[in-house]
């Protein structure tokens, strides 16, 4: 039978149960560890863990940041589209058609069916931009209409690479 009770002299709460369940060393054969070490280890572990978590979180944070940016972009676009929809327009706008935005002297915006070219470059009000109304009621600036689609190209490349692997 081992003398389980001798060594520990320290204070603190006493363990009343069997030694094997004691949170502190209760045997001569036990290693020289005490609560301070535990605390240290926990601290160390915490540090390691937090580093690990940090790096994981950083990935998430990065993702959040990029999502936030994307969200901001979406919101800004929505805001712009909303603003565009609020611009004065007397005719019924039809998806797929291109309309031309002008600014009046009093700073109000309005849509016109006529492009600056129709006015021989001399429209009665300041020309802002031309937009195509999409089926989802969003607006695409005409400059973007003919810009090559980056994603489409990337996807195309990936697909081709995949085919080459086969």
């Amino acid at each position: 039978m081992t003398d389980d009770t001798k060594r520990y002299q320290g204070g603190g709460e006493r363990h009343g149960g069997p030694a094997r369940t004691s949170p502190y060393p209760v045997s001569r054969l036990a290693g020289p560890i005490d609560l301070v070490d535990v605390a240290k280890q926990i601290q160390e572990a915490d540090k390691l863990l937090s580093t690990r978590a940090n790096s994981k979180l950083r990935v998430i944070a990065d993702q959040i940041r990029s999502l936030q940016e994307e969200a901001k972009g979406v919101l800004e676009e929505a805001q712009r589209d909303q603003d565009l929809h609020r611009a004065r327009c007397n005719f019924e706008r039809r998806p797929g058609k291109i309309y031309h935005l002008y600014r009046k002297a009093d700073d109000s915006l309005y849509f016109s069916m006529l492009s600056p070219a129709d006015w021989n470059g001399e429209p009665p009000d300041t020309y802002v931009d031309s937009y195509r109304l999409e089926a989802d009621m969003s607006w695409t600036p005409v400059a973007d209409l003919e810009r090559p689609d980056d994603n489409a190209e990337l996807i195309q490349r990936l697909l081709e690479a995949h085919r080459d692997d086969d």
Partner: peptide
Amino acid sequence: MSTVAAEAQNDYRVADI
């Protein structure tokens, strides 16, 4: 601007052909 230009070529201007 080719879409806009195409529209301007028609000898008419209506809301939606």
